[in-house]
């Protein structure tokens, strides 16, 4: 009876959390439970969701065996990991460089303008960005081919040639994300006590020495923490980048298919529900382990920055 009284005593708070709790149950926890269909051969039946899930026959790990015996599993895992790794490393270098440059600019108004301009791509949807990319890469009308022809080269059929896409995707992703990525570093650099720099200048330190010996060491904890958190997310990719920017072009799948797009195509184009669920569960599980592991490492380095 005691717990009933406690619930009654907390009724106002419970009412406040109720709407979001219902949402979490419907849109997070039911789908989590729904991953059992990765171990079943899912069939829709007339009785609705629960009845479909319950009545589908168990197949054990068959879906996973099938997934990992296909060449797809390797390709999508490779693409997901390599792209994210490159995004993390190159993104970090460019973001930090830009943050340092912006913080060194004396004219505050100009610095503000640069920062505002750089952040703009972050607010565009991937659909819009894919149109942007198309204006450059369109085979017969794009700017890049016009330039190649003007220089006397042969035009390239960009959307059919997988060779260039690792670079295109990396460039596009960095274009959209580095402005956003540098904000937090700019804030950290602005927060560094100026007296460090004053002392260094009295000792005759050059600008580069100041950056190397003051700025970078001061933001190093932040760099480490953000990078480790990014590594925790390395198994998740930006669906829009890999789906919209290559315009869902078949010949490019080899270098543009990541786990997220694979799951989507399995669901919507092929109707392989259980297989797609298995691929999604594989992604979630590995991601979960990675986040726990990286959080553990962050805790060791800097307790305050750990997620939990």
């Amino acid at each position: 009876m005691n717990w009933l009284r406690n619930i009654w005593k907390n009724r106002v708070w419970l009412l406040m959390v109720l709407p979001a709790t219902v949402w979490f149950v419907l849109f997070s926890y039911l789908p989590m439970a729904g991953t059992v269909i990765a171990f079943k051969n899912f069939r829709y039946d007339a009785g609705g969701f629960f009845s479909s899930v319950m009545s589908s026959e168990w197949v054990g790990l068959e879906n996973f065996e099938f997934l990992f015996n296909s060449s797809d599993a390797f390709i999508i895992t490779r693409n997901t990991l390599l792209y994210n790794l490159v995004f993390i490393v190159v993104g970090l270098i460019i973001s930090v460089t830009i943050a340092i440059l912006i913080s060194e600019i004396a004219n505050k108004r100009l610095a503000k303008i640069y920062q505002t301009g750089m952040l703009f791509p972050h607010f565009l949807s991937w659909v819009v960005v894919s149109y942007f990319v198309f204006t450059f890469l369109s085979a017969d009308r794009g700017m890049v081919n016009s330039l190649i022809e003007w220089l006397g080269g042969d035009p390239i059929s960009w959307y059919n040639d997988p060779e260039y896409w690792p670079y295109i995707l990396t460039f596009t992703n960095l274009w959209k994300t580095v402005g956003y990525g540098s904000i937090i570093y700019i804030a950290a650099i602005v927060g560094i006590d100026r007296s460090y720099y004053e002392a260094a200048m009295i000792d005759g330190a050059s600008k580069l020495q100041q950056i190397k010996n003051i700025t970078i060491p001061m933001i190093k904890p932040l760099i480490i923490v953000l990078t480790i958190l990014n590594i925790g997310n390395i198994f998740n990719s930006d669906f829009g980048l890999f789906f919209q920017v290559p315009r869902d072009s078949g010949p490019l799948y080899d270098v543009t298919n990541v786990i997220d797009t694979y799951v989507y195509r399995g669901l919507m184009n092929l109707g392989e529900i259980s297989m797609s669920t298995a691929a999604g569960l594989y992604q979630s599980l590995v991601g979960f382990i990675l986040v726990l592991a990286t959080n553990y490492v962050v805790r060791k380095i800097d307790k305050d920055s750990a997620l939990f």
Binding site: S28, G34, T277, A279, G280, L281, G287, F288, V291
Partner: peptide, 8 residues
Amino acid sequence: LFNGGMVP
């Protein structure tokens, strides 16, 4: 930390 994925 964990989600069921797109399909469920």
